[in-house]
Design a protein around this nucleic acid. Sequence first.
DNA 1: CTGAAAGCGCTTACAG
DNA 2: CTGAAAGCGCTTACAG
Lengths: 340, 340
Amino acid sequence: MLTLCIHEAETPLAKARIEDVAARAGTSPVTVSRALRSPAKVAPETRARIAEAIAALEYIPNMAASSLASRRSGIAAMLVPTIGNSVFAETVRGVSDALAGTGLQLLIGDYAYSDQGERDLMRALIGRQPEALVVIGVIRDPELRTLLKRLDVPVVETWDLTDTPVDSVVGFSNPGAGAAIATHFLTRGRRRLAFVGGTDDRAEARARGFAQAARDEGAAPPHIEHSQGISIAAGRGALARILAAAPATDAVFFATDVLAVGGLLECQSRGIEIPTQLAIAGLGDLEIGRELTPALTTVQIPAYAMGHRAGELALARRAGHNPGPAIVDLGFTIVARQSS
Amino acid sequence: MLTLCIHEAETPLAKARIEDVAARAGTSPVTVSRALRSPAKVAPETRARIAEAIAALEYIPNMAASSLASRRSGIAAMLVPTIGNSVFAETVRGVSDALAGTGLQLLIGDYAYSDQGERDLMRALIGRQPEALVVIGVIRDPELRTLLKRLDVPVVETWDLTDTPVDSVVGFSNPGAGAAIATHFLTRGRRRLAFVGGTDDRAEARARGFAQAARDEGAAPPHIEHSQGISIAAGRGALARILAAAPATDAVFFATDVLAVGGLLECQSRGIEIPTQLAIAGLGDLEIGRELTPALTTVQIPAYAMGHRAGELALARRAGHNPGPAIVDLGFTIVARQSS
DNA sequence: CTGAAAGCGCTTACAG
DNA sequence: CTGAAAGCGCTTACAG
């Protein structure tokens, strides 16, 4: 004997549309839409039937249609040079927290520190009609700048300062941080300074401030060494090159803590005493710098706060409280520890 | 005398639509759309006029409209527990590289290790009609599982293995990694094992494998210590608690290198000799673990490769080459260094 | 409190 | 190679 079992599908087979929900709830699409966006305007019983239908059909609104009709995408976009850097992750977290409860979905795009990638990513994101845009760093590309200015998107630049933001900027002074570390070194009797950093704008700004302060205080121009990427190994390599090219160096500022940790470890490998023979400082206040011995002197920057404030500014502009462009300097703090 | 200057606006004031481009190029919207999506089907001269108009008007297609009409969102979505962890960043990079040149935009959502956050984020992302979905970890939530199965989105789970993926999974065996480290310790004569990890599924799977292997090889059940979050400080704290609760411990496996680094540093602070008094191992092969002295024994996992392969699988399914669900085990490697 | 009509800005057949 | 028509799934006025 053969038993044939025919199962009724328990779950719907295709994606439910607002029309399907309306049909099941015995009402119209407009009312379903209202129940979702302004429930107070819908009668409780109707609302209940709609809720039942939504649950039964596992209805998820199509946001493409919603965006198109409402001209609100529900998206906030964030551009980061790399999500592989945990300090940027703090800024992302700040933005994310600021956006919580606003109904905006944060979309993160990583352009891998490439100028072309930044342009492409920005255009791709703009096509999604974001309601807010937060970027790490200042946007220099003139075309991108005019494009963004023309659109009515709130744009907040971070991690740096500029007199001419596209819209608003919330950051700290990178040259200022460099200068502060130079002064820190010089005050402690160091005279032969060196700088290690990558080639991005912010690292270069730190180098500039560092060199300027050295000049202002009558010290020799610092030796500038470019790192091959941002890694502990790159920091080690840069330190080795400095010792070869400028053996009299008595203090090194690394544009980032990751590099500085490499410098520190390279000194330990070579038996160079820190800070007696060589002083070292970094930037970012990474946990590992605090935990190593000797602990790393660093520039503490408001990574989380920049993101949070940037998110708030973008939201304020979006809400129409247009307070005009803002330039917010959140400052930085020199944390002197054992390495200097 | 008063001079009045009236400037003609050089750039368009509002967002250009496809219709505006068509008007300026003296053609129709359909043709502009075609020039953008399949240029070969448009006459070269027409194409040139359209290109001019697009540039002049700074036209960026509205992707909400495009998605709605074409039923292709151009979005690939990725869910990560936190972008603050640089090993996950490697997986993101793998996915991103696999997607390059496909026209898919990778959107990353961070749910901060919260179950509720994961559900909400997933629903929000699904509303965007992604054409591919890559998640870190295996999806356990039954509702989410049935929802995803019903939709026709390619879903790839990563960083773990399961016999019942929603769709495909590409990962490595977390219990296997735990077991391999237990064996590594036992082979080297260690007898009193301990484990430190967070409370996420993968850490628990590693603990399970670790304990099972200890049992299988006749050793005492390992002491299990939960860390308070994932940080160097948390690793230090956990090690301190182990020393208090199970002072005879001679080998500790930390679910993550960050924790293991904390353990290592705590031993150094306390003058505990590694590996003679205590052996330590981690997982993830973070750069800092390689660079410290003693260098950290670790489980190297294919973070980048998992992402890349997951991206490829999702793309293959999307292209219709439906090879059925795949379970891809990319394995892991024990890297024995000085700490064990 | 509810619904019919129009439209958001594109793309997909289809016809020429 | 090009275009007119219809429609994607929602929301926004507007009317009742």
